[in-house]
Design a binder for these strands. Sequence first.
RNA 1: GCUCGAGUGGCGGAACUGGUAGACGCGCUGGAUUCAAAAUCCAGUUCCUUUGGAGUGUGGGUUCGAUUCCCACCUCGAGUACCA
Length: 956
Amino acid sequence: MNYNFREIEAKWQKYWADNQTFKAHNESDKPKYYVLDMFPYPSGAGLHVGHPLGYIASDIYARYKRHKGFNVLHPMGYDSFGLPAEQYAIQTGQHPAITTEVNIKRYREQMDQLGFSFDWSREVRTSDPKYYKWTQWVFIQLFNSWYDKKTDKAEDITDLISIFEKEGNTNVEALCDDDTPAFTAEKWASFSDKTKQEVLLKYRLTYLADAEVNWCPALGTVLANDEVVNGVSERGGHPVIRKKMTQWMMRITAYAQRLLDGLDTIDWPQPLKDSQTNWIGRSEGAHVEFKVQNSNDTIPVFTTRPDTIFGVSFMTLAPEHELVAKITTPGQKEVVDAYVEATAKRSERDRMADVKTISGVFTGGFAEHPFTKEPIPIWIGDYVLASYGTGAVMAVPCGDQRDYDFAKHFNIPIPNIFDGVDISEEAFADKATTIIGNSDFLNGLSYKEATKKIIEELEKIGQGEGKINYRLRDAVFSRQRYWGEPFPVYYVDGMPQMIADEHLPLELPEVEKYLPTETGEPPLGNATVWAWNTETNAVVENEKIDHTSVFPLELNTMPGWAGSSQYFNRYMDSQNSEAIYSQEAIDYWQDVDLYIGGSEHATGHLLYSRFWQKFLFDMGIAPKKEFAKKLINQGMITGTSALIYRVLGFKDKFVSKTFRNKFVHEMDEEVVRKIRNFVQLEQGTLAFQELHVDVSLVNPSNELDIEGLRKWQPEYEKADFLLEDGKYIVGREIEKMSKRWFNVVNPDAICEEYGADSLRLYEMFLGPLEQSKPWNTAGISGVYSFLKKLWKLYTSIDDSEPTADNLKALHKTIKKVEEDIENFSFNTSVSTFMICVNELTAQKCSSNAILEPLAIVISPYAPHIAEELWEKLGHSESISEASFPKFEEKYLVESSKEYPISFNGKMRFKLELPLDMDKNDIEAAVMAHEKTQAQLKGRTPKKVIVVPGKIVNIVG
RNA sequence: GCUCGAGUGGCGGAACUGGUAGACGCGCUGGAUUCAAAAUCCAGUUCCUUUGGAGUGUGGGUUCGAUUCCCACCUCGAGUACCA
């Protein structure tokens, strides 16, 4: 019987589903192991071949761990809130829930087809109210918490209130808004209820604030910093501007240091840790207060080089800085206003694009040097960012290149405060060799000594202190979208109130339109039943709002990362309706042992999740400070795009690849004539435009299906082609697999033709998991014929004694595959299987004692065929729990070795010698050999290196 | 610019802590089988001036010996970007 993958794969997929083979139990005598994949957003396009790469790897690992006797948790779900479903809803009016449901169904079919060993009973969907109930619940817990620097953790807000009642806030060391006023217990008691709530908002871990946000007019929503790439939205590439809006914020900055420290405790890829480190952006320095002359105002500044304070010759404020208007003198008002206005108009993108242009204006105002009391001119300049530090810098042109350039440009003096350094050409910024001079009490000190000294002095005069600054900003948590988690929040007198836990979830209301309202409110503003009745604790019609018992609900929804920030814990007990998860469940599963996913989530999902995990840890409901011990980034599978070349200016004229050339003047006259003839253009410039066409229109020899193209899109209906050898040859380009490049390949066709086991093996065989690699199906026949050979090997099975060679082939394989899986080197395992099957076939092995363990070793990679072979071997239980064969060294012991004989490090011939031969005998045997003498040509070797069991090297 | 990766045949890639460079697969070439094709099997396949040489992006270095370690540079990719 031939290898019939269709029948086999369908049979075992059904068996696994019927028998719930991969259901994980929350208690077991076995050790636990938790293997997690990043759950997908179910888009309309379905899975492409890039998705399963990580899923296959994690599935191999999960299946392997089961063979190794672990109780494995391997769940899957859907990150099902998101923009595409909403955009589709806006266009068609179809509810996003329906689109999402359809897409999920397709994803599920595709995943089932690949034979993944997921425990589907634990599936979660972020858009399911039963799930987002707990997202809302975490939000409420954050709202009810503040961050105490003394205990260095989140604490209950009620504790803070009792401190305020007892002693005010003067002794409280909290991470709170910078503008929090100081007050005594008496003062607190005198505050109105509303004021109290306002003050508390400055402490809560999630809070409302008027924030400068990234507003994307095209999407009608704000975006988080990590959702803005090069000044445009990550999704869709729309322009983004800065705008002030009242938004929910997450006080992630409270955890900046712990997020940084935690990185040392987890086994994550270094590049990923680096990008989180950079994103958090810790810098040590000092906070310095500069007094404004003839005023009570001070300008706070953060600097990493307080040691250079005697080199300050001007200050620069961000144009948006709140003191600008106050400081500016009447004489300078006009130019300053013009500059401020011009800056506000420039998009972030513009400002970023030209880093080279130096601009700024003098305000006319002066600050006072804290030590010399000299006046320091105050400038504004757009190179100072309002969002970083204090939005103001003390400029030390001799020590900072940017300040140096600014000073040169505006003819500001550049005092030199370094000993023995020439600053006539550029600034000197090398901390290691710094010796301070010309700086009063700092003279002669190194960077380190001077920094310590100056901070002491600043503290003495009360104008500064040592400070650590972070680049990380608090995260905006509001989105002006429909298809996201509603906030469990209603407003009384403009102040946010939480809906009590027991009334969650607060479900999304129905709306007629998914667009913002005419008054510019978010889509939830269209809902007519969206008010909270505090007496019945239910959502009621808006018209019942009376501001006494019925109040308006929040109109924003949560961002995409809300639902993914705690899903890994929820899987541990996903059907629990009483709690986010039971304490028993999390005590058993603890954390994720292996997390596989893309590196694009480095500063988004993976940072936010770590933040939430630390918060849950502080609350005492998560036992681990980090949610995932080990993380692996699978590489991207790139697509091979197909390009056709349009003659510029001729809509329907396309030339085959060889005819186009980027530099027309380099083209052959003959070719130019042909093209001119083709487009009937005697004179004028020839140029070409590259256009992507669907890769399915191109065959493996890069020939275009011309008729197919004409039918593909109306634009090409009348296309006319200049052919070479009667064919149109397309250009090829390796690019990210993306719908817009028409280079997406989905796994369905491959599954259909070769089966899931082939696809699984092939995706692993492509190369190292973590590297990105181009998708090319050309090689898939290799793994397919391997499976056929494997199948054939099991056609006759008997109880014969295995030969020494049989055992050697098997145990070599066990050893290598075990090492490979532990090292996530899945590509080399596939080669190992091929070698093993080739050897056993050559040896005509039919021994049960070999074929049985071999089936288990292969089973994590190609589970369907392994189950079928296992059944053929006479088993009635699934192979999935069979224990992994034990490697035995004794079968690999050799008695002789084929020594490579090298001359000056180059291998010239090989010589078989017994392994127990000692150094001297080996040397004698090699020197006596005729080929040695031929190589030496009469010379006497200077030295002979013999490494027994490895190599012989003759020098001379 | 800065940070982090990566450069090995026609292609994907292999080579454990420095010890036979190119495993395994694709492709290609030749052969067997076949009326023929598919499938299958066998042999070959880094390059060159082939009784021998050279060779892992380039140039140096350490070593008996370097794809592997060190230094400098080049190219490509990813992240980040006026961060005070």
